[in-house]
């Protein structure tokens, strides 16, 4: 038995799988944003964020600009979160999860060099235009 696989083919297959996974993750984020938009309104969502962060009391102060800002932030975050997967993978020593985790010392081992999904991040960048377009409709 040959315990190897051609690296180039493995990477190619992995990247196709990564695209599938990326699509799945994006769907969940879009669903979450849509939920916000229907449940509270995008403005209210942004307003809460602003209010809590800056102690500005009134929702009335929420401007369309703030809502837009939040949308952009979300979109950017979505693109960037792919990097995170990487970071986290690097922390394989991490015993994270709800599992081990709920705890305390659980899972923090982060590698100085991080992660896997860097690759995916570039894919995320490609999709961010679509995502931005979606957000602009909220």
């Amino acid at each position: 038995m040959e315990n190897t696989a051609p690296l180039d083919q493995l990477v190619e297959l992995y990247q196709r799988a990564a695209k599938e996974r990326q699509d799945g993750l994006m769907k969940f984020v879009l669903e979450a944003v849509a939920e916000h938009s229907t449940a509270e309104g995008a403005e209210a969502f942004a307003a809460e964020a602003m209010k809590l962060a800056s102690n500005e009391a009134a929702i009335a102060e929420t401007s369309a600009a703030e809502a837009a800002e939040a949308g952009v932030a979300e979109a950017t975050a979505f693109a960037a979160q792919e990097f995170s997967v990487a970071e986290a993978m690097a922390g394989e020593a991490a015993e994270a999860s709800i599992a081990e985790g709920m705890a305390l010392e659980a899972g923090e081992a982060i590698a100085a060099e991080a992660g896997i999904a860097e690759a995916l991040s570039m894919k995320a960048a490609e999709t961010s235009q679509t995502y931005n377009a979606f957000l602009s409709k909220l």
Binding site: F83, A86, E87, M89, A90, G91, E92, A93, A94, A109, I110, A111, A112, E113, A114, G115, I116, E118, A119, S121, M122
Partner: peptide, 9 residues
């Protein structure tokens, strides 16, 4: 020891 993984970040 964490597992180092090459990253773009």
């Amino acid at each position: 020891a964490p597992t180092p993984i090459p990253s773009a970040s």
